[in-house]
Write a protein that binds this DNA or RNA. Structure first.
Lengths: 159, 159
DNA sequence: GCAGCATCATTGAATTTGTCAATGATTGTC
DNA sequence: GACAATCATTGACAAATTCAATGATGCTGC
């Protein structure tokens, strides 16, 4: 019979309930971190079928655009160390998804561009990513999604 | 004498500008990730003076509350692997900031509670964290901050 | 022109974070 | 009282983060 165990489903739920009333829950940073963790997990799961992770997907996305970013540009924009970009581009290039092209204007830099295969894979990956994102975000209305995007953009790109 | 180099300040800014118009910028997941990266960096910097990181700060925050969470509760709530919680609590306990207490109702679990020192340190850390957060978030109005909090809560705790 | 400083990509190392499997102690179930 | 499940813990490994050093190239000022 034992005293009511705290590990019962209802008890665990109650513990979670209690924690949700903690001070942390008013902390934008915490909410940001938790929402991001969920989003990242869902994204990685959705992209796994294309052999991508959120990281490499982001690099590929920028390579697919006609922006011709240098590796430095990618590092700055994605908030990565330049050495991480080397590894990411190495991987994508090794799979024939992107190319490093010489920049005629500056021979120090590599411009990263997607190959045809890269574009094709990205198209499929984007569909998977969008679907996963939609599933995650259908707890809020499209209107709220727009608002959220605007607010996050302000935080993510404070000028 | 050399064609206009792309590494000029204005050129880098232009590259960044171009990237900001990329498809990624419409991606809530990406914005979430970037905003979180900034927030995390600022948080860790602010908490460094107390010898804390965002991680350990979060654990301490929940231990300071009178919620008496088990380590499993902390893992679930913070989306950490239970083994990570072990390391975090080990560290905090080693510094005398928290205690593991036996749960009379279930001898398998440890309840994590803050010591007096832990509470004192947390108070200082919270001030530092709030100040850093304020600096980060003063690009949006208090009203927007409230809205953002509500929306993030929906994403972070989808029930 | 060229000397000195800055920037880019790259390598390598150290640290932190994320993920998983296995284990002993305990608990709940039947 | 046997059996499955849960908790904390350990250990191993992959991924991500951070930092310093380096060779090639570009820029600045003289």
């Amino acid at each position: 019979m034992a005293a009511e165990a705290r590990s019962t489903t209802s008890e665990v739920a109650r513990a979670d309930e209690r924690l949700r009333n903690s001070a942390l829950t008013d902390d934008l940073s915490f909410l940001l971190a938790r929402a991001n963790a969920l989003s990242l997990a869902a994204g990685n799961a959705a992209l796994a079928q294309q052999g991508l992770r959120v990281r490499s997907y982001s690099v590929l996305a920028l390579a697919v655009d006609d922006t011709r970013p240098s590796q430095r540009d990618l590092a700055t924009f994605l908030r990565l160390d330049p050495s991480q970009v080397v590894a990411l581009v190495d991987d994508l290039q090794g799979r024939g998804l992107v190319r490093r092209e010489a920049d005629p204007a500056d021979r120090r830099t590599n411009v990263v561009v997607a190959t045809a295969e890269g574009r094709a894979l990205f198209a499929a990956a984007q569909r998977a990513a969008r679907q996963a994102e939609r599933a995650l975000h259908d707890v809020i209305t499209p209107e709220q999604r727009r608002t959220l995007g605007e607010l996050l953009r302000l935080l993510a790109f404070p000028d």
